[in-house]
Amino acid sequence: MTKMVELQVGDSLKEVQLSPVSRLDLIKYAGASGDYNPIHTIDEEAKKAGLPGIIAHGMWTMGNLAKLFTPYYEEGFIQDYFVRFKSMVFLNDVITLKATVKEKKEKKLYFDVFAVNQNGKEVVKGEVVFSIY
């Protein structure tokens, strides 16, 4: 694994492709986070809300995306993490997580971060500021 401090502008962290989104993934996230909004777990409730089916919690995708940075906890930490939820994530979607260095300043690395679905559509887009010790 390359060290964080050795990364240059334009370099990317190792991409992660998630298994197809399952109902159990979302039930587990509901339980672990305390977000029991039924549009994430119960088909009828999602349909009543005008959705074609249940959708992932935005925070589930955001939580997953942050794990690209977990292997680097000895070097630094996520100081700022911002995302915009751009598109819905449905059951069986295959999400790929990406992070690319856009700027390096003193002891901080600025990353563009994305979660992209199987059609190449960005579902989550944002920025991470990783602060080096």
Binding site: N37, I39, A49, G58, M59, M62, Y73, F77, I78, Q79, D80, Y81, F82, V83, R84, F85
Partner: peptide, 17 residues
């Protein structure tokens, strides 16, 4: 409201983990 809200953006800021 318990229904119909859309989570548009989310930001975290940390001094340390």
């Amino acid at each position: 409201p318990s229904k119909g809200l859309i989570h548009g953006e989310q930001r975290f800021h940390y001094e340390r983990p």
